[in-house]
Design a protein around this nucleic acid. Structure first.
Lengths: 231, 231
DNA sequence: CCAGAACATGAGGAAAACTCATGTTCGTGA
DNA sequence: TCACGAACATGAGTTTTCCTCATGTTCTGG
């Protein structure tokens, strides 16, 4: 099942889920697809510069060099825009992880954990906007100030579960022995916890506090070990 | 050191920290102190009803039966308002935990963990607004949609560290044997992780998914055990 | 080449955030 | 008890942001 092409097939499918989201146009022609991506890029860039609360749709549009109306063709609003960015981030993350896993499979759950965390950390450093929204899972306790804005995705529920399942699939043989149901729960918990601790690590240190990153790995390893130990 | 009066001495001290916060008046007369609290109560109530993104300062003021100008006397804006609420929540939590601890000290770190988690869960159920902002630590991934709003407190850094220290103090004899420095880090990490997992637990189930609450305890216990085991 | 779908645009309406000039109440020292 | 400065109260109005929508243009399949 590994490497069955880019896994962005259902990107933006979230638009079908949000209750309040009035359903926006999906870009089908190449030109508008490029504009769509450009808007997301602009959003990511501004997030890093100003934070989520300071972000305005007008400024995103301006930086993306599209009129404001075009932005609202594709996104129902600021929230939807951020959700779409979170979704794209998730796709990128899973792709990158997939690539690294097929390069050389890790030894056991501990190795898998290290890989997953390291890749996340790398994206926190490299990818614009990732520091502010990552997957929209947990604490965007960033510059804009608070988590009220937080449930980026009304789809969060499904999203979280989906991510856990994807990780489970990516893990492959590593988790082969475990009870699948308990494992899915365990992965969701681990994911949520790791995201929180890593956000903490990046709150004070722009490169991520190494001590806290190490603690994050220890936390997850320890938890998963127990999870996998007792059947 | 236990029970040295209400620990809200420095409540609202956060106002000194936020960069963008233009510094607001602090209520000193009784009447305005009551209004201040009433505004916070109104904010909490509306949070539960509408979510953080739907919250408007005008409506908060209306429910608190104060003119809009008064709200802005005390709070520099929506963000500051939510931060103040988070701060008050934290004070309440520490007070409640303190009370329970002095009633009957728990057996070891595991017992302490259970107590701390149970009290948090109780507040998620009882205290208006707590489900939306709790301490402003992590994922207000609630109805408003995302964590951009998330770092409720620019003071988060200090806040987190302070909370860890307070917990350390509350723990008292339970953690006596441990290395204080490592313990402080451990508690911060545990706190962040627990908050995230508990928010997950309440995302789907209004009363908190029991399975996930149990997993949260297991996660923290396991992590702290290792922390305290290896010196 | 034409019809219809997809796309583009930005002035302007609606709503929320936030200000500030003006007037009132409180505490307290003489 | 009174006077005076500090703290408090108020809400109409300014600014800012969100978002819509009527109108016009470009693409694509038959």
């Amino acid at each position: 099942m590994r490497h069955s092409g880019p896994m962005s097939a259902d990107t933006r499918s979230h638009q079908a889920a949000g209750r309040t989201v009035p359903a926006r146009r999906r870009p089908v022609q190449q030109r508008s697809q490029e504009r769509y991506e450009r808007i997301l890029d602009a959003c990511a860039g501004l997030l890093d510069e100003a934070g989520a609360t300071a972000l305005t749709t007008k400024e995103v549009a301006h930086r993306a060099q599209v009129p404001i109306g075009t932005l609202y063709q594709f996104f129902s609003g600021k929230e939807d825009l951020l959700a779409a960015l979170a979704h794209r981030n998730l796709d990128h993350y899973l792709q990158r992880l997939d690539r690294r896993l097929s390069a050389g499979a890790p030894a056991g759950p501990a190795g898998f954990t290290d890989l997953a965390v390291d890749e996340f950390v790398a994206m926190k450093r490299d990818v614009p906007g990732f520091g502010q929204v990552d997957f929209g899972l947990a604490g965007t306790s960033g510059p804009t100030g608070f988590r009220g804005d937080r449930h980026l995705l009304d789809t969060d529920l499904d999203n979280n579960a989906a991510v856990a399942l994807r990780l489970q699939a990516l893990g492959g043989e590593v988790f082969a022995a475990a009870d699948p149901v308990a494992l899915t729960i365990g992965l969701r918990v681990a994911l949520e916890a790791a995201d929180a601790v890593l956000n903490l690590a990046f709150r004070s240190d722009p490169d991520g506090d190494p001590v806290l990153i190490a603690e994050c790995k220890r936390l997850v390893r320890c938890y998963l070990a127990e999870q996998l130990g007792h059947d």
